[in-house]
């Protein structure tokens, strides 16, 4: 197997130059998907017979929660690659993934509360799914805080990577929480295997929104990584040339 791409990916300069070209395209596709998904979900998808219109929050709640979890994988895997291969770029990705993941987890919790009030009659319950998502938020915040707690960045990176890896225990718990402890949160409506319990007319805009959130996540991650690269590579010639421009 050709591993050249992996080594190239380890070069901050290569990443910075490539993403300069990719990002405008990625952003336009993403914004198009999000615009279509929002209009479709808010105005054109049929009303839910049990929950009424409050269910329209699903079009941001589920994608945000999806990416909050996927973002944790990104952060933990990047941390692991950093520890194993001592790759600087990998730690940069790990650092960038923390604030994005924290905001997405926060959004999943807040939109969940706003959805819960008209549907369940309460903003918050100590339900298994909600509690494990709250722990996810604390993990993200813990990693941001830990990063700032060390004087030396190398030590901070290693500590954060270890915390991120230990925290992955929480991920299967979040996934399975709705099946293990059947409390208030509804079980998954979209399924990869077997039949989904959501009608196609509601599911299509949801799939568009999830695709849009994946695009947005990738764009945001590149954006945060690039800002980090400029600072950590500030002594190099190519960054000095960018500054002069």
């Amino acid at each position: 197997m050709n591993w050249q791409w992996f080594h190239r990916l380890g070069s901050p300069r290569w990443f910075y130059e490539k993403t300069s070209r990719w990002m405008p395209w990625l952003l336009s596709v993403t914004l198009l998907l999000l615009a279509v998904g929002v209009v479709w979900g808010l105005g054109y998808a049929p009303m839910d017979s049990k929950q009424g219109n409050s269910y329209r929050i699903i079009y941001i709640h589920v994608p945000a929660a999806f990416l909050a979890l996927a973002g944790y994988y990104v952060m933990a895997i990047a941390g692991a690659v950093g520890i194993i291969w001592q790759m600087k770029m990998s730690y940069t990705v790990m650092r960038a993934a923390a604030p994005i993941g924290a905001v997405l987890t926060f959004l999943a919790l807040v939109t969940g509360a706003l959805w819960g009030k008209p549907t369940w009659g309460t903003w918050w319950v100590w339900d298994a799914r909600i509690t494990s998502m709250l722990i996810l938020l604390f993990l993200y915040l813990g990693i941001i805080a830990l990063q700032g707690a060390y004087q030396q960045q190398r030590t901070a990176n290693k500590a954060c990577a270890i915390l991120a890896l230990v925290g992955t225990v929480n991920i299967p718990i979040i996934y399975k929480s709705v099946d293990w402890w059947f409390t208030l949160h509804q079980p998954a409506t979209l399924k990869l295997v077997g039949e989904s319990s959501i009608d196609p007319s509601m599911a299509y805009p949801l799939l568009v929104m999830i695709a849009g959130f994946y695009g947005l996540y990738s764009w945001l991650l590149m954006h945060w990584v690039r800002a980090d690269i400029l600072q950590s590579e500030s002594k190099t010639q190519w960054v000095k040339e960018i500054v002069v421009k």
Binding site: V38, L42, M47, G52, N53, S54, R56, I57, I60, H61, A64, V103, F106, L107, V110, T111, L114, W115, K117, P118, L216
Partner: peptide, 20 residues
């Protein structure tokens, strides 16, 4: 208005927009 659910729905979308 969204049959009385408007406040919840629009607040969710507004907060998401701000955060993003």
């Amino acid at each position: 208005l969204m049959d009385g659910h408007g406040l919840y729905v629009w607040a969710s979308y507004a907060i998401t927009l701000l955060a993003l």
